[in-house]
Write a protein that binds this DNA or RNA. Structure first.
Length: 492
RNA sequence: GGGCCGGUAGCUCAGUGGUAGAGCAUCGGACUUUUAAUCCGUUGGUCGUAGGUUCGAUCCCUACCCGGCUCACCA
């Protein structure tokens, strides 16, 4: 290990501790209070003058004035000032504090709680010993650690120095618990399905591929849990859910991470209208539990999950925004001609009709969907796993939820007709052969499951990271993922 | 993948074709009520990497690496 000057100085101090017979990394600590608990109980503790033992990391500067010294220590939930007097603790301990310890070292301190003359609650130290010597120095005192790459590559330091970062992940944990509780209370069973899959499906995405050596079998990291969860509905469960990582071999941007956390749930004897109610209630509940309110601020806009969410039809919204009736323009060529004829700028030409419709939707509708909005009834070509609408077989019983201009959820009445499903897979297979590397694979075992009969079922997927982005007002997904994917850095 | 911007001390950042700068931190000294302590002094650099141009490159050029923004991709 090559050390810079500051690290070398700290190592020298560490060796000095050892030379004095002091273990710089002792196994045991025995605090009587967390810092937060000590502060809460201050009046009582100060009145009795009892000995309080705290443990924490030295943060900020050590202000040493010859015969008196101040510093602050912090643990997870609080910080407190230490007051050290050479006269009180003696030359040896005072010098030990001054010469052997550094900012970021972790110490155990005992003493009594009082206020200083300036009024700050402080621990008047009688005993002090090191619990952990820190060899790396802290970043700058006031600017802190700002460099994005530095923060993400050393998330531990980011969390340590930028305290509010820990709040994001505490809130994330609360939201996760709330999501589970909401589903558990409605008798959904939490399950775990394979991450390594011989076939991938359930979404339009390119997968990661890996290999099982012993079995000589290629495997895919799942891009969705959908097809396994619906097998469980066939298997007799009336409701199941899974919260876990999906993996998609695609680009990374502010709302996409290579691996991300998805909640999918399926409910027998429900349809997509039931799932709309479930979605509204779930997100409302999570927002309330995690933030204390159903109104959150996202990028300077108040977003209210409280009232019934707006519902718009995809086809109608496109008609309003662009004047195009995509259902009356049922192939790529005529749709593209009409797009040009309508003088619509900023629209790219796509390779399939379905993708062209999606391009129009992404360009003209999505950016304006700030408040939570259900977008209903997607063309069947875009939705190979969703049931057709009885009154219009070109469309499916499907919705997506958009919030803050971002897709948050996707749901449909699940296609349970194995013959129709087979045709959809075949159509996807033709797209795959034609070069659409995100098209679905044929899943014969899934069709076999459907042939035993899957009850009418509603399914829902929610991008959990994106929900946390909204709840914590974070502009990028990597700020709500502890260790987002970064390119490997070559060692110099 | 394209465009634009960036990478200089532990951290936050200036800067110049001619010996590399500041603040904070560190280190040494003074100091018994500090809290961005103060005062005096001090250390610290493959200037992202590799080539090229040049008498001389951290600076100019080229390629590459890493990151940011953005577009594309990603329902």
């Amino acid at each position: 290990m090559e050390l810079n000057d500051l690290q070398a100085q700290r190592l020298t101090k560490l060796e000095r501790l050892r030379a004095k017979g002091i273990n710089p990394f002792p196994a045991r600590s025995n605090r009587t209070h967390t810092i937060a608990a000590a502060l809460t109980a201050f009046e009582t503790l100060a009145a009795t003058g009892e000995l309080v033992t705290l443990a924490g990391r030295i943060i900020g500067a050590r202000r040493v004035m010859g015969k008196l010294a101040f510093t602050h220590i912090a643990d997870d939930q609080g910080s407190i000032q230490l007051w050290l007097s050479r006269g009180e603790i003696g030359d040896e301990l005072f010098t030990h504090f001054r010469d052997d310890l550094d900012t970021f070292d972790i110490v155990q301190v005992s003493g009594s709680l009082r206020r200083t003359q300036k009024g700050e609650i402080s621990l008047f130290v009688k005993h002090l010993h090191v619990l952990t010597k820190a060899l790396n120095p802290p970043p700058e005192k006031w600017e802190g650690l700002k460099d994005v790459e530095g923060r993400l590559r050393q998330r531990y330091l980011d969390l340590l120095v930028n305290e509010e970062r820990r709040d994001i992940f505490r809130l994330r944990a609360k939201a996760l618990i709330a999501m589970r509780r909401f589903l558990d209370e409605r008798d959904f069973v939490e399950v775990e399905t394979p991450i390594l899959q011989p076939l991938y499906g359930g979404a339009a995405a390119r997968p990661f591929t890996t290999h099982h050596n012993q079995l000589h079998q290629d495997l895919y990291l799942r891009i969705a849990t959908e097809l396994y969860l619906k097998r469980l509905i066939v298997g007799g469960f009336s409701g199941v859910y899974e919260i876990g990582k999906d993996f998609r071999n695609e680009g990374v941007d502010r709302s996409h991470n290579t691996e991300f956390t998805m909640m999918e749930c399926y409910q027998a004897y429900a349809d997509y209208r039931d799932m709309m109610l479930l979605t509204e209630q779930m997100v409302r509940f999570i927002a309330q539990e995690a933030t204390g309110s159903t109104v959150v601020t996202y990028q300077d806009q108040a977003i209210d999950f409280g009232p019934d969410w707006a519902r718009i039809s995809l086809v109608e919204a496109l008609k309003e925004a662009t004047g195009l009736d995509v259902l009356a323009l049922p192939d790529l060529a005529t749709l593209w001609e009409a797009t040009l004829a309508a003088g619509l700028k900023k629209v790219e030409r796509k390779t399939t009709w379905a993708k062209q419709v999606d391009e129009l939707f992404s360009t003209f509708i999505v950016p304006n969907l700030i408040q939570p909005t259900f977008v209903l009834d997607y063309p069947v070509e875009l939705s190979p796993l969703a049931k057709r609408k009885a009154e219009d077989p070109q469309l499916t019983e499907r919705f997506e939820v958009y919030v803050g201009g971002m897709e948050l959820a996707n749901a449909f009445s699940e296609l349970n007709d194995p013959l129709d499903q087979e045709q959809r897979f075949l159509e996807q297979g033709r797209a795959l052969a034609a070069g659409d590397d995100e098209a679905h694979q044929m899943d014969a075992d899934y069709l076999n499951a459907l042939m035993y009969g899957m009850p009418p079922t509603g399914g829902l997927g929610i991008g959990f990271d994106r929900l946390v982005m909204i709840l914590t007002n974070q502009p990028t997904i990597r700020e709500v993922i502890l260790f987002p994917h970064l390119r490997a850095r070559e060692e110099g």
